[in-house]
Design a protein around this nucleic acid. Sequence first.
DNA 1: ATTGGCACTCTGATTTGGGAAGTGCTAAAA
DNA 2: TTTTAGCACTTCCCAAATCAGAGTGCCAAT
Lengths: 352, 352
Amino acid sequence: MRLEYRLSERKKAILNAVIRDYITYGEPLGSRTIVQRHGFTLSPATIRNEMAELEEAGLLLQPHTSAGRVPSDKGYRFFVDHLMGAYVPSQEELIFIRRLEQTSRAIDAILSQATRILAEATQSVALAETPRLRRNHLQELHFQYLDPFSLVLSLIYRNGLRRQSVLKLSHSIYDGVLDLLSNYLNTQLRTTNSLDELFHRTVTLPLEQEVQKYRAIVMEMVSEIYAQAQRDERVYLTGTSYLLREPEFQSMEQAYPILSFLDQEHFVRQLFHSASHGVQIEGTHHVYCLIGYENTHEELQHCSLVATPYFIEDKASGMIGVLGPTRMDYSKVTAILQTVASNISLTMSKLF
Amino acid sequence: MRLEYRLSERKKAILNAVIRDYITYGEPLGSRTIVQRHGFTLSPATIRNEMAELEEAGLLLQPHTSAGRVPSDKGYRFFVDHLMGAYVPSQEELIFIRRLEQTSRAIDAILSQATRILAEATQSVALAETPRLRRNHLQELHFQYLDPFSLVLSLIYRNGLRRQSVLKLSHSIYDGVLDLLSNYLNTQLRTTNSLDELFHRTVTLPLEQEVQKYRAIVMEMVSEIYAQAQRDERVYLTGTSYLLREPEFQSMEQAYPILSFLDQEHFVRQLFHSASHGVQIEGTHHVYCLIGYENTHEELQHCSLVATPYFIEDKASGMIGVLGPTRMDYSKVTAILQTVASNISLTMSKLF
DNA sequence: ATTGGCACTCTGATTTGGGAAGTGCTAAAA
DNA sequence: TTTTAGCACTTCCCAAATCAGAGTGCCAAT
């Protein structure tokens, strides 16, 4: 996906100028404006020639014959890969983001607050997923007898994440059997990476001899654990209205498909999945970027996504990201996203 | 809020015709069209005279001098109170709604699924709040010792609702003390209705003699219980994109304020609160309706809300509703909402 | 290699001139 | 007294016409 072009320094400077101005003003850029605003010691005619070549290379576009130039998706890609520098968040922004640490101390509350902060700081749509309870590396299952029909279940993950909950069963279970089953499941875990695998293996493969007679109970336990995890995997999304302020989404034909897409949680999940196949932004710690046509979902052809995982005890646990028009301020968004994500990681790691 | 007018049967018939047609077609109605479509044995001129009077009464509006008539908010109100009959959902609709019962068995999953069904069935925005854990009538707190720093907490509500969770404390606590504090809190509950009251009382009033020395622990327990409840009170909202299909929200000036409003969870909460102060729709079991200007939030001046509580063991526990343009099909929405709500009540009551 | 000059293109805002739809009013009819 | 036909009038909406502005591409001169 990454683009390699041999561009003269001058072409780079011009491309850079066009993209920066377009991001700022949202209007096609003409040769004269470029010269004036960036103090090139060249005439507009020269710029025009250069821009014509940049267009031939597919980095710029002309909305129509007599309009100025606009960056193409490839142009943005080149910009993100080679031209944009690192943005340094202002003191105010840092203070604003840091409000996260002071607030609530539950994973859900942190993510909910984080998306809110992220959306406001970037004036874009912010999205986050809770830790992938079914996919993350699970280390241990721990059960504690409560009454014949209920257990206290503790899930202990490699990244230190722990979930405790009460597990209700329709079969009664005795303390001795519980130990047996607990041992069995934890043995299974040694060759299994995640709840997902444990669940599918239990459902599809025959059980070992020793627990054969408790088949129904094992099934119910695993299914119930899996269902609980699934329920607790949520998506947080906020800031859709910021999208509607952008000039490119003023008409409903443009805005509708996107809002409709975002209204469907499973699409948003897929989005996070595809994000990790995006191109990593240079100089960042796992910040990924998908620009316009790089999005597999057609509805998002005019959007870009910047996303990054947050870490619990240095293990990637879930993702958080920003969705905006392709004409977004990539540099700023990247920096703010990174800051927010590392704040999440920090705050969450403190929980354990 | 309810309107009492002395209207001749003929005026009612005309008003009825105008509103029904406007709901269906979304365009101002002229006298000629009314006569044709509804087979009145009157000339357009007569209809015109009648409509002029209905306009004087504030029930109809004219967008401009030579346009047809459109219902005013008062017109809709009169329609909802006196004219619209009960809608009987079709077999397909009932089957569609009934899918709710088959799916998951956790409160959150039920509400999430219910909003989805409701939004699709009404082609409008659907919203739901989880049971009001802080406000509902709390009957008993039950603690079970787990380890020095954690307890299993059971909240038992009057409506049969039970929440179990693990409560982590920073103070260690011993079994004996736990009994004492548990007794104390449950005694408090006898003169207290809700978690909300319990929390505020604990924070503001001095503690009784007996538990004075455990002040810090009591504080932490109550705060943590309260915080957990707060976190578990969620709002589900889906179907915003349907709103954007309505002709009245084609332009961003119209749509933006509403979407921006809905993006803020606390506003949606307020919305539910104001809903219960709306007018109850005749012939329904607690279905409330707010039309256009009756909404206290300015952003919703062109929207109507129909909302109803769902019941767990016959106790109202939270609300679910539909938001649409004032030009919504009130009769249909009311019927479907009612069906969905009673399905929720049924499904939830089965959980306990 | 760069630039000034110029003809050309396309957009977007504004104006103009009909229909079309629908009203209110008046006077006649029932 | 109520209803209706007739007619003048209002307003919107659409399409066509016009025009200024912005920007281009290309050519010939520097």
